[in-house]
């Protein structure tokens, strides 16, 4: 049963990724949509960031006082200053470990 669910879900995921260049929808979107599409990466990634940082896994409720939230704020500063993916991840994880183990 798990295989059926897994494969069905996998096919659904693939179809969603493939949908708009599958050839089934032949009309390109009007150029006026570009104004919206420009914000796709930032909007989707911000949603994932907010949910993983602001939602306290212990209570499943919003909480901006967690170690994760503080580590994320520092990571944002590092990202703004260095524009480096590696530095952001390394500093963010280190800060989280320090906060959880030493403070």
């Amino acid at each position: 049963m798990i295989w059926v669910v897994m494969i069905t879900t996998g096919i659904m995921t693939f179809l969603m990724r493939f949908s708009m260049f599958s050839g089934l929808i032949n009309k390109p979107l009007p150029a006026s949509f570009d104004r919206y599409l420009r914000y796709v990466p930032i909007a989707v990634l911000s949603a994932i960031i907010a949910a993983s940082v602001v939602i306290d896994p212990a209570t499943n409720a919003p909480n901006i006082g967690t170690d994760r939230a503080l580590a994320a704020i520092i990571a944002v500063i590092v990202a703004l200053v260095t524009k480096s993916v590696l530095s952001t991840i390394a500093v963010g994880l280190s800060v989280l470990w320090v906060l959880q183990n030493l403070v």
Binding site: I49, R68, A75, K83, S84, T88, I89, L93, L96
Partner: peptide, 17 residues
Amino acid sequence: LNLDFAIPLTFIAIVAP
């Protein structure tokens, strides 16, 4: 170790700049 935190950090690195 909270390694799952690495993914939001990756996205922060992309979005913040």
